[in-house]
Design a protein around this nucleic acid. Structure first.
Lengths: 358, 358
DNA sequence: CCTTTATGTTGATTCATTCAACATAAAGGA
DNA sequence: TCCTTTATGTTGAATGAATCAACATAAAGG
């Protein structure tokens, strides 16, 4: 980073965001999108190229007259991001480069009681494979998580309380609830536009099982105006205090799956009306459920559509990776280096220099 | 406004906000709060004084050494804001100056079928009283409202559909749902800090009645991260599709009020867990209810407190006035002059000049 | 009266940005 | 092949909101 001011940092971040959101773009296109001068873009882009964050490409140029633009795209080899989902007894991992391309995925069982040990093992596992340097880690955990402090507040599934983890030997780490990571996965895809979503997952707490049992759980990630909503005590999306609570259900056999879903949606009905989301996303184990004789139209508000995830079940770990990757595309304000910054509001933007006074 | 750039506009707005939030403050205090240089503040404050938006005061100065600061505060006489709540058959009005002081309140019955006629009558009524000029109007209506377009989408109570209103003879007007205006009222008070709230009102649709009847309604305003949440179709907070729906209740006599409230909170229970709000605010007609033998602790999530409004019932029209007043403390981006700007996200901040290219 | 301590002002400097002019590159006709 | 058209991209001077550094002002307290 050549020039040191905060304004530069914000502009660089805005440019990087635009490049991330378009497959390939040009200096002029970015300058138009951000309402800035072409010459400004020349400076910013050349600085970013100098820092190895982006690169010029020989790319396609759909023009019928005039000079062809020099295409710009993110430099995937700048570094790697690891996304890790840890459940009791098993894990899933997604290794992603800075351009967002998935380079490797794996899953398996584990015996670790502390997430840090599992993370450490995953880092060792991918260490000697010649990947670009590891920039950071996104961690998805079942339970109540404070992602700003990097604290697992409570997790009955993992049998942990007030468990902090903010880095692994200098490599920064961010954590969030698994349902929220699923929501981040959905946000990273087509649903990138700022919108409102309810993201519902069923989390199996035993490796290899499908379907849910009494030890398992459902989780809800809420997206409000394009951002994860945590609530006032990081328990937003956690069902509770209700006559219907999935945890109380005994093991289901196949014939009951459809009835389970129907009961679940009746439980959610009021909240869906109140929240007025654009779409309800369903992922995790619930996708595997038999839903042939289930008609949701009567249980879901008129303007709300339903989407089922694909069944590869790596959505949560991939969303965890996206959580850290998003940090690279957010400005870091002085004094808030350690937190997840989803969206800075203009009211909080600091002055552009350092003040001469305390 | 002396200097024409957008950056100036944003800085001025940030300064005005800080002045609004403190009873009286000084140049140095603001410069510290906004992390800007003292000399910058000299320029900005002097410009704002030149524009009559703020003024210096002979104010108190709690210092025991050093030069006393020159106190700065908003100039209430800069202009007036009218907040108007229109219900079928009656209205309430709050007249507020730019400093937020309430100058006049009134209520009464009316026979208008179109809100515009009611607004017009209210403007005429306050016209010749020697107030500072009317800067704008905030309108609270029962029903589904698109405040960005200035459109009453649907109001069964007022028997209107797709009714637009964005200004009255050159005076800008913004409208919102009545429950959201109540939420804005709460936000303008102690609960100014960014937080999460559920604001519940009972709206009586007959002048002079207390209690609710089958023609009446409840309304919910949701505050998420310190901002009104509208949902994807502006129906957030509207109950629906439920076995319990207040509209279906027959007239209540006094003995049933407590049971009514209990049923209402059972209806809301799941949603309160899901939303994890800091506080549940109750206003409008519901405040008048007999709630002696009602214990909410078992129906409300642990971390959530309950606040009842004072019983003057002008909360909604006052909140409507605050809605317009908030516009004066938000930057207006080019191309978005007509919308309510609650919070601009840094991603959308434009460049600081006009681009040399389309 | 002089020191201390704070607030507020002034003029020079900084630096991201714009502006205006120019350079580069490709297409398409003459 | 040359010349016009049309677009992208670059360069250096100008702009302007901010900082910096020095000074001015004001009040308290020995």
């Amino acid at each position: 980073m050549k020039r040191g001011q905060i304004q530069t940092h914000i502009t660089r971040t805005r440019v990087l965001r635009h490049i991330r959101e378009s497959v390939a773009t040009s200096r002029i296109e970015i300058s138009r999108a951000l309402s800035m001068d072409r010459s400004t873009m020349t400076h910013v882009i050349n600085d970013l190229i100098g820092d190895n964050l982006i690169r010029e490409e020989e790319g396609l140029s759909p023009r019928n007259s005039g000079r062809k633009p020099v295409m710009i795209s993110l430099n995937g080899d700048y570094g790697m991001i690891m996304g890790l989902e840890i459940q009791p007894g098993f894990y899933r991992m997604t290794l992603m480069d800075m351009a967002g391309a998935i380079r490797e995925r794996s899953m398996g069982s584990h015996d670790f009681s502390l997430p840090a040990d599992m993370v450490s093992a995953a880092i060792d596992e991918t260490g000697g494979k010649g990947y670009p340097p590891l920039l950071g880690i996104g961690l998805a955990l079942p339970g109540t998580v404070d992602p700003y402090k990097g604290l697992l507040i409570e997790s009955p599934a993992l049998d942990l309380c007030d468990y902090p983890l903010t880095d692994m030997g200098g490599i920064p780490l961010v954590m969030d609830n698994d349902a929220n990571c699923f929501a981040r996965f959905v946000l990273s895809g087509e649903a990138r536009e700022a919108g409102n979503m309810v993201c519902l997952i069923g989390e199996s707490h035993r490796y290899g099982r499908t379907g849910l049992s009494a030890r398992d759980d459902i989780g809800i990630g809420l997206v409000i105006n394009g951002q994860i909503y945590y609530g006032s005590h990081f328990t937003a999306g956690e069902p509770g205090g209700s006559p219907f609570y999935p945890r109380a259900l005994a093991r289901l056999d196949k014939s009951e799956e459809s009835a389970y879903l129907a009961a679940l949606f009746r439980y959610l009905e009021n909240s869906l009306y109140l929240l007025d989301p654009e779409v309800l996303h369903i992922g995790g184990e619930l996708v595997n459920f038999d839903r042939k004789d289930l008609d949701l139209t009567s249980l879901i508000p008129p303007g709300c559509s339903v989407e089922y995830g694909k069944e590869d079940n790596f959505e949560i770990s991939t969303g965890a990776a996206h959580m850290f990757r998003d940090r690279l595309f957010s400005p870091v304000l002085p004094g808030e280096e350690k937190t997840i910054i989803d969206a800075i509001r203009w009211e909080n933007l600091p002055g552009y220099g350092r003040r001469s006074d305390s």
